[in-house]
Design a protein around this nucleic acid. Structure first.
Lengths: 227, 227
DNA sequence: GCTCCTGTTGTTGTGTACATCGAGTGACGT
DNA sequence: ACGTCACTCGATGTACACAACAACAGGAGC
């Protein structure tokens, strides 16, 4: 019996799907495909060596997740968001962050704590050698690592989805120099340090509240830079 | 110019997709397709007079929403949920219900209030002439009407999605006589009345807290009936 | 010069045949 | 009698050809 998974959450076809899905999602969220970019099913299918059919399935999933939008005869576009839509999501994300610390918090394992320390080191390194794309990847890793400390699976999925929908828009402001990149690096480094302190003493609610505060402030800074 | 929608959220193909999507979602959530049921892409496609391709697109969306699960060589199945998974979602839904009243509440318009009174009347009628499927439809209409009072679009989508994922499982307990149907009708009637009182004086937070209490109690009753 | 119409082109949507996979069945060997 | 293996069958997954649709360019008409 080579399949140790009785629930059949894997399989050849599903693995291919997941690989394509994650790759395209990363490209969108790391701004390789900026908001408004038009994608072609054909060229994407050729790039990954599959036909349009499975590629369309992946694109349809990304559309369900709010990252793409297809219209017949025109094309499939990477979604954008107005400042008002963004504010709604950020308000919600703030509440969900607090929920993560209150509903089903899990104290980090030693391995997980090491992971956070590595993230902190990467953040410090970024201050000296700026790299926007590495920064995008880093804040994603940090968010996902924090999310892993929540035992509520639906809450994890929802928070993750909202993160992918909004942070790339926020990063756009950073890439376009609406926000000061160097300053953001330092702020993030401080955030990681502060949350790490809370995690090390096992105060998950404190960590959640710090995260909530930074979600709020990052949006406020973007608002002020835009106006 | 016959198209008054510049955002292109409609269109011939998209309309067909939405129609199929809503119809199948209703069948799943009204227990026409009970959890565990195996569906056939071919027969569904034939029933609606389309080919497998657009039908598969709809099924893929429902899979993304957690209502279906397809595995190659076996079939597509209506998802079920263990009591533990259900508890996680219910805990989350309780918090989101409170959020609806706190984050972006909108006082109901006179038309919306009339809608709630009609729902109340339907609930009263159901007590005398029981009808499980009509009850399923009624509580769905009530939930969606309450959701319409929240101005936060992402919160609406998320709450709706969690509702569709879980309430059908709860209804299963009702259909299988784990819960007393007559008693549930009366409890629901009371819930609608109580929330209506809060809505009429414009106290949205009170309405949200009543809803939260009923979400909690309905799950508790199911737990007690199952054990 | 401007408007409208029409053909062209490229896109996503649909239909259909085939590939791939897994469960069930039956014969075979032990 | 029981386990094993090969086969069959129906399911979902994939590839490709075509239809439907929208934007664009170019020219006729005013």
């Amino acid at each position: 019996m080579p399949s140790p998974d009785p629930n059949t959450n894997s399989g050849p076809a599903r693995d291919r799907f997941d690989a394509l899905h994650q790759e395209l999602r990363d490209r969108i969220c790391l701004l390789d495909y900026a908001p408004g970019t038009r994608l072609s099913e054909t060229v994407l299918a050729e790039e990954f060596g599959v036909s349009r059919t499975p590629m369309r399935r992946v694109l349809a999933r990304l559309e369900a997740e709010g990252l793409l939008h297809s219209v017949q005869g025109v094309g499939t576009f990477v979604t954008d968001a107005t400042i008002d839509e963004l504010e709604q999501v950020y308000r919600l994300r703030m509440e969900l962050a607090e929920l993560s610390g209150r509903l089903a918090p899990m104290r980090p394992t030693p391995d997980q704590l090491d992971g956070f320390r590595q993230i902190s080191n990467r953040a410090k390194a970024l201050i000296d050698t700026p790299d926007p794309r590495a920064f995008a990847r880093l804040i994603m890793d940090f968010f996902l690592a924090l999310l892993a400390l929540t035992d509520n699976a639906p809450l994890r999925e929802i928070s993750e989805r909202l993160y992918f929908q909004t942070t790339r828009i926020w990063l756009t402001s950073l890439f376009d120099s609406v926000l000061d990149a160097q300053r953001e690096y330092e702020i993030f480094n401080r955030e990681v340090e502060d949350i790490l302190v809370a995690l090390e003493i096992g105060d998950m609610q404190a960590a959640a509240h710090i995260q909530r505060a930074h979600i709020s402030m990052s949006f406020t800074r973007m608002q002020q830079g835009t106006s």
